[in-house]
């Protein structure tokens, strides 16, 4: 089972990296960008074929290591059954 995890900074937590990317784009002439927040994406291939189990395992992985719950939120996307 292939899953994806997105981690992003919580609303209200300052994101200096997103800000720097935003101002770089502005300097490159891209106007109309209201806001950029930087996050991380993890592609995970799990042994299990069971959707519920995959979600359970991934949730645990997020809480234990992938996300720092003090500053980050995570989102799990189940991609496929194979």
């Amino acid at each position: 089972m292939k899953v994806q995890v997105h981690t992003t900074l919580k609303e209200g937590v300052l994101d200096p990296q997103g800000k720097a990317v935003g101002s770089a784009l502005k300097n490159l002439g891209f106007s109309g960008i209201k806001k950029i927040r930087q996050g991380k994406l993890f592609d995970i291939d799990l042994e299990t074929d069971n959707k519920d189990e995959a979600e359970k395992i991934t949730k645990k992985i997020c809480k234990v290591l992938l996300a720092n719950m003090v500053i980050e939120d995570y989102k799990i996307i189940i991609l496929s059954d194979n």
């Binding site: 200096p16 720092n68 500053i71």
Partner: peptide
């Protein structure tokens, strides 16, 4: 220490990068 929860809060990227 903040990552393992023994101290509160987090240490983020310096504001001027």
């Amino acid at each position: 220490l903040t990552e393992c929860g023994l101290l509160p809060g987090a240490l983020m990227r310096n504001n001027k990068m």
